[in-house]
Design a protein around this nucleic acid. Sequence first.
DNA 1: CGCATTTGACCGGCGC
DNA 2: GCGCCGGTCAAATGCG
Length: 504
Amino acid sequence: MDKQGRELAFLHSGDFLHQNPGLSDRLTHNSVDPSNSMIKEVDFFSRDRTDDKFPRDQEIKDGSSSVLVHSVVNTGLNLLTSSSGLSETASGNKPNYELKKLQAELDSLYDENKKLRSLLDQITRSYKDLQLQLLMAMQKQAQGSRGEQKGELNNGISIPIMSAKQLVVPRPSAALDVNDNSVSEDKAQDISASPTIIPEAMSQINPGKQASTEDGLDQTSQSWGSPKSPRLEEGKGEQKVPEVPFRKARVSVRARSEAPMITDGCQWRKYGQKMAKGNPCPRAYYRCTMAAGCPVRKQVQRCADDKTILITTYEGNHNHPLPPAATAMASTTSAAAAMLLSGSTTSKEGLPSNNSFFPSLPYASTMATLSASAPFPTITLDLTQSPNSTPFLRPPPPTTFPLPLHGCPQLLGHPMYAPPKLPAAAIPSLQLGQRHASMVETVTAAIASDPNFTAALAAAISSIIGTQRSNIDGSSNTNAPNGGLTGLPGSPQLPQSCTTFSTN
DNA sequence: CGCATTTGACCGGCGC
DNA sequence: GCGCCGGTCAAATGCG
Ligand SMILES: [Zn+2]
């Protein structure tokens, strides 16, 4: 419910338009700017989707070649007006007729507006998916396509299929209610039905076996509990226990945050809390509740040394579509996990070899460490630019390899996301005002300029959750962006629910 | 009433 | 085998 509200807010906020000016153009005028790549996507999608009853596809095609605003609008109106069946009657009552006609026009406009909104939302999601996939692809490239492990062919094929599939998926009930259960169920089914894998699953690259696929194929995807679920509720027996010699990789994010939990766009339910051994602060266990069987878990723990540092460890990959805000974080962490898995599993000595991927660089504003000490392969992205103490003060586990990373100043300087959740007031306006560089683009740039992929990830994450610290007020723990927004006056020039990705 | 959190119980892995 | 430990479960509780 409230999710829905947020989504609506997102759509109405016009924030998306800021990010994609071309879209706004099209939204308002039904015109197409061929110069913008995003618009091309829009055209593609709309053609696929709106041919059912809307004549717009034709118009859009026309528009792609030459912008014909008026013809577009007129066509649609004429059609709808005639369909109203009032035209012929012409009961001589001119004003009344005019009124009805206008009303019909209004209705049609409204209807079209609604459709456009849903389309826009769909496009947004599709775009995110594509982003994620591109990220994955790039990540694999960065890995030098090491190892047959992943079956790259499959991936290469799956990408177009999946994107097309997702785009075509009929979503009658408009996308406004992305988070509506019914819709998500549909999506889940859709995904599960497809032989290909969901984007996040792609990151679960497994060397020897394709255990990851079962996550993707088995829509229940309760594979998480498999390693240790003797009870298994419905006895959905089959191959539920694939041995899982390797646990899932973990991506740990260290960030400075006063809030009890960083805002990553997902919905989490706490299912446990334990006192860590060497840490006065308890460790909280959360699981993703955005989908029924989502295997993603995370642990939140405060650093013993510096209580202002919050360590969030993600494990698993989402088996369901994610809202944009969550996509940002999920794709980033899953990419990191993929990198870690592919790197460490191919060569068991892998850790040193990873060093080749992370050449030491002078400005180490971010740091990633790969740890083999933990029972699970873990990659730690350190976003704490610890101003005072050296980052090495932390007790590094014996088998941890600290890898000073390139800070990618340009990345950090140009955050690609408006920090989620924070009211616009706290966001420097220029961030939103700037051209909205996608994470993928940024990562691409990072890879291009520097093979250090982790730095890009860290930078991405930092931009995702960045600046979310501070407001410690009770509402923050609910992880609800609106909760934070309510109390604060929205910045005038920025839409309330802006936050590129905060809408979840 | 439905949902999320709390919190002690419980479980498997591991070292002794 | 025993106990520790990380992790999870689930009943109780709180909250809207
Ligand atoms: Zn999830």
